[in-house]
């Protein structure tokens, strides 16, 4: 499993979001938006299979322990 993309997001749950809100920064690598639209970024399409997703999640959980 190689080449997993990483995107960043700044989530403002209490922001006042206008219709013409522009949410992309740093050439689209960082999204600045409310949780509803951040969820869309998190659910973006890609080639990773569900088993690879679980494996990757386990790796991250091991790498970053609970705070």
């Amino acid at each position: 499993m190689t080449g997993i993309s990483v995107l960043g997001a700044l989530c403002f749950p209490y922001m006042r979001r206008g219709w013409l809100h522009y949410s992309r920064a740093r050439d689209g690598l960082i999204t600045v938006d409310d949780p509803r639209h951040i969820a869309k970024v998190a659910n973006r399409p890609g080639p990773t299979s569900p088993s690879e997703i679980e494996q990757l999640a386990d790796t991250l959980i091991r790498a970053f322990p609970a705070a």
């Binding site: 997993i4 993309s5 990483v6 995107l7 960043g8 997001a9 700044l10 989530c11 403002f12 749950p13 209490y14 922001m15 006042r16 979001r17 206008g18 809100h21 522009y22 949410s23 992309r24 920064a25 600045v32 951040i38 970024v41 998190a42 659910n43 973006r44 399409p45 890609g46 080639p47 990773t48 997703i53 990757l56 999640a57 991250l60």
Partner: peptide, 20 residues
Amino acid sequence: VGRGGVTVIDTKSSRGDVQI
């Protein structure tokens, strides 16, 4: 962690207008 990869989310509790 989803089909498109990993997303690292930092939450900010500021209220009001947010613009780039």
